[in-house]
Design a binder for these strands. Structure first.
Lengths: 172, 172
DNA sequence: ATTGAAAGTTCCAAAGT
DNA sequence: ACTTTGGAACTTTCAAT
């Protein structure tokens, strides 16, 4: 079917990404950069651009995927077009930093509808939750029902996102 | 070559994504969800799963890409494996909110090495910049050389990211 | 717009050099 | 590590609905 799709990455990974089969070299980095720019490039095309025979290139890509250097390949969508025009970043602060409530929250974040990603951070805030909503009402409901109301959360500050500017993300 | 790759999305888009050729329906949403989960699914496979003939499905996917509902398909990489183990979110506050300096910053963000994405937000902070660095020294250099030092930036607060938790991102 | 069928292409695995 | 090869899978096109 193509370079493709190991089993879709399950979400809460138990924090172990230490299968590192082979040292990453510049060729691997070049391959990864190409696939960051366009995740649907065919193996043949990637091979051509990095100057590698197809079978060798395919082997490297497979290894990169199996070792989770390439964690996944996903479509980036326009949430506005899909009926969720409101985008926001919600900073959560836990009261007392109970390890337990933060852990249990961590496990449930991904299931909250509208959550694009969450970041567990050091500093004044504990989590940054990146969300979309169909309306400001929807955003309020999302925040109040699924974030503020979480056990242990002491404070939530919602910042509307005016614009998301994608980085070039060149690996170097 | 596949469903693939219109010209790679150029970065600072002038904020107009209003070519909406056809109304998005539930089938489109289903297709998009599949491609969010696995951006390398073949057209044949997507067609099978949503119960559409291949040619129809291919047409829809093409339309979704041309109208930028699907903005792009990109590999998600493990920055740790690629030699940038430090991940951080930097909150920037501009002094005086000079429109000009914020605009010019906006245009230059994507070129800063290590920047994954930046968010222009409403609220106390003006930008959240999501970055990776090869070391804490590298992070300091990145922040001091490219963020704090930007004209108009009054304050920068750096939060180390312990963990990124991807959301399910179901469109609904 | 959507469809099925057929043509043309690309991909993958397994062989050998 | 590279090349070739055969067969399977994929995308695309087109006439018709």
């Amino acid at each position: 079917m193509s370079l493709q799709s190991g089993p879709p990455r399950q979400n809460p990974r138990p924090r172990e990404s230490f299968v590192r089969p082979r040292q990453i070299d510049d060729l691997d980095r070049a391959i990864v950069e190409l696939l960051i720019a366009d995740g649907r490039l065919s193996n043949a095309e990637v091979a051509r651009r990095v100057g590698l025979p197809e079978s060798t290139c395919a082997g490297r890509i497979r290894a990169l995927r199996e070792s989770d250097v390439i964690a996944g390949i996903h479509a980036d969508v326009d949430h506005v077009a899909l009926g969720r025009p409101i985008e926001a970043m919600v900073a959560l602060r836990f009261a007392g930093h109970t390890r337990g409530s933060m852990d249990s929250f961590r496990e449930r974040i991904a299931a909250i509808p509208g959550v694009i990603a969450a970041y567990h951070v050091a500093g004044a805030d504990d989590f940054l939750v990146h969300v979309t909503a169909p309306s400001s009402d929807g955003l309020r409901d999302l925040v109040l029902d699924h974030l503020t109301s979480v056990e242990g959360v002491g404070h939530a500050q919602t910042s509307i996102v005016f614009e998301r500017i994608p980085g070039a993300r060149p690996v170097g």
